[in-house]
Design a protein around this nucleic acid. Sequence first.
DNA 1: TCTTTATGGCGAT
DNA 2: TCGCCCTAAAGAT
Length: 275
Amino acid sequence: MPEGHTIHRLAQDIGERFAGRPVRASSPQGKFADSAALLDGTVLEATDAHGKHLFLGFGPLGWVHIHLGLIGTVAFEGPASDTVRLRLAGAGPGGPTMDLRGPAACALVTDGEKQAIGARLGPDPLRPDADPDLAWARISRSRVSVAALLMDQKLLAGVGNVYRAEVLFRHGVDPFLPGRALSRELWRAMWADLVALMRQGVRNNRIDTVRPEHEPAAMGRPPRVDDHGGEVYVYRRAGLPCLLCGTEVRTQVLAARNLFWCPTCQPPQEASVRP
DNA sequence: TCTTTATGGCGAT
DNA sequence: TCGCCCTAAAGAT
């Protein structure tokens, strides 16, 4: 379930539930057992998020660096199972719990190591200090398609497969357009859009990208029936009619990920690089 | 009861 | 570009 908005929301939610008090830490699944034993009974002092990376601060002991990967999840209720990599529990019976399952990364790191991870990441639309010109500097001289660039975490941190497809659609951009064919104005607009969309994603804890005037009620069509929850234009809608023009939404595997776009609303450009 | 898929990313080739 | 890691749920058989 994880794009950047999920991770920032988790940083908030975990902070609200556990920060400032001692927590019980354990690793039923075992792979984080040694570190969990070290953290057990200590105070969670801070949480932080950068792109898809989540950090839980335990003062002098350092930070737990978590990356959910494709299939990692965090649950705040339910009994621990033997697949739980890290379980946190607040004081007392009925206290808060957190179960982390299937993360790509869960490791205790130093403050310096945390800084280094952040330094490897591009600007994150959800961080107030983010500078979109840092991303522009690379986009504007790249021959790589904008669809591939948007997924490069060294370039731009936090955007995943859903926000990629949706922001390209919302700006009518051909996914195969090379970065250097993008105008600066268009990039600034896409960045501003990502900031707004992802902030809303944090608030609602889901991805919604469809403008109010295109929502099902306004368009006289049934709401999207999909397990992923949000209302979107093209993501995972391959073969279905585009919500705006009716053209069949297309899909193609690009760098091992499924890309979705509308060939009419995002018309091919001469400069585009078709794989 | 299997196989496939998923909002990621790494390292080997 | 490929295989691989982690887990759960949906889809196919």
